[in-house]
Design a binder for these strands. Structure first.
Lengths: 210, 210
DNA sequence: ATTAGACCACCAACTCGTTTGTTGGTCAAC
DNA sequence: GTTGACCAACAAACGAGTTGGTGGTCTAAT
C-alpha cells in the first residue's frame, strides 16, 4: 500500500486540503491516463495541478517515478473499491467490477499504458500485486460452490475480470460492432455482460442433477 | 482495403522481393507494436527496415501517416486470417481468434496503442471497419441456432472476441493471477478460454428441452 | 516577544540531448 | 531521362531535468 491514497472515489469524509504531493498525484493520474507515459509533458501536470513543475522532481525524482507512484496509488484504490468477499455471488462481483471500470475508465487506461510499456518484464511492485490477487483467488475458491465445481478459481477470476472490463478496455470496438446507441448505453451493456456471466456460471447438467 | 498488404502470416506463395514501401511497413509494424506511437523513433524504423529515414516522408508524409497505414494494413490481415463463416461452430471461432492473437501479439498491441491514442474520437477508417464487423455479425446471426436463441449476435461477437483476446491483451495480469507456469502454457490457457466459451454458449434448459 | 533555522514552495533561466521533418545533391536502373 | 533510392547535413522545436535565488511559515531556542 502506498502511504498516500487519493481516495478520489470516496463519497464523504472531511475534505482535508490536498498536500502538494497529492495535488501532483491527482493531476498526474488524469494526464497520464489520457496521454500515456511518453506523450505526457511534466509541464501539463504542473499546470493542471497548479503546482510548480520543479516539485515533481523533489517528490518523485523523475517522470517515471511519478508514473509508478500514480499507478500504485490507483491500484490501492481499485483493491479497496472492489473487494471480493468469500462466498459472494460471482455475477454480482462481475457487476461491481464492470460498474467500477465504467465509472472510472482512467484506471484501466493507466494500467493498459503500463502494460504496453512494460511488455512482459516484471512490473514495479509485482509481488505486492500478486499478494492481492492471491487473496482474491482464495476468496473465490470459497465462492465456487458445488454448482460451479467445473471451474478453477484462478483462471475463472482472470476471465471474469476480463469480461467485466472489456467494454471499458475497447469502447471503440464495442461501438464498431454494436453501434454507438447500444454500446454507449450503460444498462444495455451491463445486461449483456451479466447475462453472459450468468450463462457461463450456471451449473452443468450433472451439477444440477446432483 | 489498403493496397499493399504484407501478408506476414501467409505460409507459402512465391516470396516476391519487398518493395521499399513494404519494407518500411513491415519494420514499422514491429517497432510501433513494441513502443507505441510516441516512443517510436523514425530512425529506428529506418534502421530496422534498411531503408533511408527520408523515404518515410516520401511515402507516408509523417510519423502518424505511417502509423495509420500500419494499422490499416494489419487490420486487413486480421480480417483475412480469421474469418467467421456463417453456420460455423462458435467455440471454434473463439479458438481461432485466440490462437491468432497468441501467435501474433503485435497486432493487438498495435490496436491497443491506437485505441488509447484516439480515445473515443472516431478512428481513421471507421466506416470501413464497421462494414467488416457488420458482415461478421450477420454471419454470426446464422450461426446462432435454436440452441443459442437467448443470445444476440452483435454483443455476443463483441464479448467472444474479448474472451479470446484477453490473455494476449493483459498477459501480465494473467501471470499475476494464475502464475507464470499456467498463464504461459498455451494449451492450459486455451483450455480455460474454450471451456469458458463452451459454458457460456451451451443451451439453456428450455432450449435443451425444446 | 524575537529571532534563527528548517522546511517548503515558487519562479525563471539554462543545459542539453533528442527527434521530426526538410533539402539539395549524387547515383544506379529501367 | 525519369524514377526512386541513398546520403549528409541542417533547422527548429521540444521537453526533461537542474540550479540558484526568493519568500513565506512554523517551531524552538534565546
Amino acid at each position: 500500500m502506498s502511504d498516500s491514497q487519493l481516495r478520489t472515489y470516496d463519497t464523504g469524509a472531511a475534505a482535508a486540503p490536498l498536500t502538494t504531493r497529492e495535488k501532483l498525484l491527482r493531476a498526474a493520474r488524469e494526464v497520464f491516463a489520457e496521454h500515456g507515459l511518453a506523450h505526457t509533458r511534466i509541464s501539463d501536470i504542473a499546470a493542471r495541478s497548479g503546482v510548480n513543475r520543479e516539485r515533481v522532481y523533489g517528490y518523485f525524482g523523475s517522470k517515471e517515478g511519478l508514473f509508478d507512484a500514480v499507478v500504485n496509488d490507483a491500484l490501492d484504490e481499485l483493491a479497496e473499491a472492489v473487494p471480493l468477499t468469500a462466498g459472494e455471488d460471482l455475477v454480482e462481483y462481475v457487476d461491481r467490477v464492470h460498474e467500477f471500470h465504467r465509472l472510472h475508465p482512467q484506471l484501466l487506461r493507466l494500467l493498459l499504458w503500463e502494460a504496453l510499456h512494460y511488455r512482459t518484464e516484471p512490473l514495479p511492485g509485482e509481488e505486492e500485486r500478486q499478494g492481492r490477487y492471491r487473496e482474491k483467488v482464495s476468496a473465490l475458491e470459497q465462492s465456487l460452490g458445488a454448482a460451479e465445481g467445473h471451474l478453477q478459481a484462478a483462471p475463472t477470476l482472470f476471465i471474469l475480470i476480463g469480461l467485466a472490463a472489456w467494454p471499458s478496455v475497447v469502447p471503440q470496438l464495442a461501438r464498431l460492432i454494436m453501434g454507438a446507441d447500444e454500446s454507449e448505453n450503460p444498462e444495455i451493456m451491463r445486461e449483456h455482460v451479466l447475462s453472459f456471466a450468468r450463462s457461463a456460471l450456471r451449473p452443468t447438467k450433472e451439477e444440477a442433477g446432483a
